[in-house]
Design a protein around this nucleic acid. Structure first.
Lengths: 347, 347
DNA sequence: TATCGCGGTTACAACGTTGGAACCAATCGA
DNA sequence: TCGATTGGTTCCAACGTTGTAACCGCGATA
């Protein structure tokens, strides 16, 4: 509690408060002699700058926020690690928040906590509308993660994303390439989120290109992108009459796929012989599941790096910058859930 | 950026800054008439208190930190959610930090960021020594999660934990109860962390009670509690000469068990017929894996609730409180990885 | 009528920090 | 030798908020 302040250090070093401030901020115009003396005092007393005071005075704190829907989703947890690493590289500290996809909470994080505590926020939006976010982005540094919710000419904020349509298309094409003709999709969202719509689009595109007809019965609507919904959806699909029962399924997230795998296991069906499974996310959980899950893995390092750099630039810049859209690469990792066999993991 | 301050609201409402402050803080001694007028102005202007200024003035901000080793570990991600929920209940906001088990980082979070930005910190320590933490706990509200690293009479901070020895003993006893006699343990830590030592103790205790001899070859040392180390350790165990190859394995965490399951799958061994698997954590990943994993699940709700309440009490109290140790309950969930069969999940 | 008490409000200072201007040598150019 | 320049340092004010004390009416009390 005995917080050490600049004043204490100043007295100890026999200089003014401002000089100490200059030293700790690495400002120029400080002689080597005094710098050394001050640093000694800093070290002896264990001085640490008070972020609140600093923020109050300067308007920025070196803290940025990362707001994701759900930390228990491996994809977001892994992404958070990459963002932290990239931010540390730039001398920024990341505070992580969880929105649970709640629109109010997402807005609060961008405006409320954010505007007066954090220098900027990286937000992975789920529930909040584009208009509301655009309004915020104009007055507070904000970078949106994941898919774009708008058309290109309506962009009202910085975006870092992967090409969702292409990613879904790649995964589906891979399934079709195995000769499967009854391909289901799990992840059509009841709320018709942008992610869901784009992945469905890629799914349909790939079907079309493979000459496979799209059957809406094989694309049931779900509530959330979690294991439970994947399990329930796959269970229903597996119970379809034999003539329409799918021989492959594309899940819009790894968690959905894990749930689907579980449903297939319970139903006594074999992966991939009876049903091949592919998904999107590239989480470690998918890699280690049995069988290991074919998944489209977004370049999380690139996403994190682009997002943090973009945010840092916006924070630094005084005048408003034009909004940017960055697209990160993704790759299909074909594994046992489509290829069959047993491979040795080394990762 | 156009931050609305108390001053703006005061002008709008035609009262002093202090009166507005009194209203927003729900202080007494404000007439209904002015209160109403002020709240109107607050609403019209969209005023939001500035946490930095508030923290600077009062010494507390309503923000608490949660520092865990690794967010990509399902157990910690799930715990974070519980902590957030409990804190929200008390009107506190949680900022999540990740230490990667780095001792320096753990200390920095407790003293550096913490002491001047947050009101208190809930820390799940991994690398930092008891002595260093005790020093911090005396001058800053700190609650330690997970296992106790000290003997009872040396406690230098508040603790919320489960009985690790009992938890490990329950899991191992369950394996022994299946008639298994070559029971391996995965999770003996090269750094001999407290968690690891206590779980090994429970493991040995259960073996002793079951009349099974403890063979150090069946308790290999590992580096981290992740999937990869579980995989590598199990692979080595499976390669042991037939006479000592284990017929059951107790993993010190769900991630280790997932890795172990993968290794068994690769080796063509069946769970639980050839090798039964049990672990500790009770994460959703364990529930959904194939076969579903028998795990000791700690009461995360209780852990989070106790930790947040304990921290809140310490923050509120001016004079130093005696340090407390709270133990949360845990239960064994026996599932397919020890029972065999195929059950229908509904969660 | 003078005093007290009290609900309601305001003025002032302070939290720890930093930007800006002022200040004080010492050195330089003319 | 004097004024100007430069490096190094200090003083002052301000960021938005709240604790303390003071203030102002008003009705109740003596």
């Amino acid at each position: 509690m005995a917080a050490v302040t600049l004043k204490d250090v100043a007295e100890r070093a026999g200089v003014s408060v401002k000089t100490v401030s200059n030293v700790v901020r690495n400002a120029p115009r400080v002689s080597e002699a005094t710098r050394k003396r001050v640093l000694e005092a800093v070290h002896e007393l264990g001085y640490r700058p008070n972020p609140s005071a600093r923020r109050l005075r300067t308007g920025h704190s070196g803290l940025i926020g990362l707001a994701v829907p759900d930390l228990a989703t491996p994809y977001f947890a892994e992404l958070a690690q990459h963002v932290r690493a990239e931010a540390a590289h730039l001398g920024l500290t990341v505070l992580i928040e969880e929105t649970m996809g709640d629109a109010t909470e997402e807005l609060r994080l961008a405006t409320g906590v954010g505007a007066s505590l954090l220098d900027g926020v990286i937000l992975s939006p789920l529930g909040v509308s584009p208009d509301e976010l655009a309004a915020v982005a104009n007055e507070f540094p904000l970078v949106l993660l994941g898919e774009r919710s708008y058309e290109r000419d309506q962009v009202g904020a910085d975006h870092v994303l992967i090409d969702n349509v292409a990613a879904a298309r790649d995964a589906t094409a891979h399934l079709a390439g195995l000769g499967r003709t009854w391909i289901a999709a799990i992840g059509v969202d009841q709320q018709a989120s942008a992610t869901s719509r784009q992945r469905l689009e890629g799914f349909q595109l790939a079907l079309h290109e493979a000459g496979v007809t799209y059957d809406p019965r094989l694309a049931p609507a779900i509530k959330e992108f979690d294991r439970r919904n994947g399990l329930l959806a796959m269970r229903a699909l597996a119970a379809l009459p034999a003539r329409v029962r799918p021989d492959a399924v594309f899940c819009f997230s790894d968690l959905l796929a894990v749930g689907a795998q579980r449903a297939l296991f319970e139903a006594g069906l074999t992966i991939p012989d009876d049903v091949a499974v592919a998904s999107i996310d590239g989480s470690d959980e998918a890699l280690y599941s049995t069988p290991s899950l074919t998944s489209v893995v977004p370049d999380k390092t690139a996403i994190a790096s682009l997002a943090v750099k973009c945010l840092a630039a916006r924070i630094r810049s005084a005048e408003p910058l034009p909004f940017e859209v960055h697209t990160a690469p993704h790759w299909l990792h074909a594994r046992e859930s489509t290829n069959g066999g047993r491979q040795q993991l080394f990762g």
